[in-house]
Amino acid sequence: MAMICLSSLAGCPGEEVAREAARLTGSEYVGPELLTAAATGAGLPVEKLHQALTTAPSFFGITLATRRRCLAHLQAVLTGRLLQGPTVFLVPYGHHLVRGISHLLKVRLYAPGEVRAQSWAQARSCSAAEAVRRVREQDRVRLLLARLLFSADDDDNDLFDLVVNSSHLDVEAAAQVVAETATQPRYRETSYSRQCLEDLALANRVKAALVGEDDEVEVTSSGGLVRLRTRVTGRRSRRRRQRLQQLAEQVDGVMGVELEQVDDLISRITRPLR
């Protein structure tokens, strides 16, 4: 059975479609509880995690390191959940968080801006002008954060397997389309896709364990062997590399750790000056 990642633009009935698609496919719907679990893992209040994923970058706002910490924990919680069984999930940037898994169906729910603003105004009993402003602002922030955190254009439809215009379909019909697509053989779980998901889940658990030490560390894993790629430099770099290695080795499921230090341009230029 496929897993389904639903990505919903502001003003689209994402949660309703996700719940109905989960019912139709016999899967479990998960959403807000993942954010709560990720916040707990990151040691932050859930409101702060929500802010990290939904507010625009600003000089006095949430730091990039905090945003990365939140994402690392959300990825770890999400992929851990996906290993447990058929799931339909709806979390911010979910389609960026799980990549390369052939049995994950990625769906974007969209509608023209004016339709979404109308729904927004109805759902929140606000004026039409206010709804238009809020929907536009959310679209702007979504695009900004996708570029900042994933170097991606979030409006690129190639990120998705299926794009559904919710202004043409009601919730039941949209969920039906999603559920029917998910039953196509191409989205069936294979030994390979299961292995990819297990590798990704382990890499994400390790990343969550390391992100407090090094928020830019890149982690991949294959069959229990974890590879770390870090830009940790400076006088204490040896100790910090050892620390990263130790922390990674302590994560459940890790059978070996390889660490690669990337010598970035800035550290190379500044080394003679230190």
Binding site: G100, I101, S102, Q184, R186, Y187, R188, T190, Y192, S193
Partner: peptide, 10 residues
Amino acid sequence: MMEMARKAME
């Protein structure tokens, strides 16, 4: 690769 797996299953 992901697309190869999907093609084979299809």
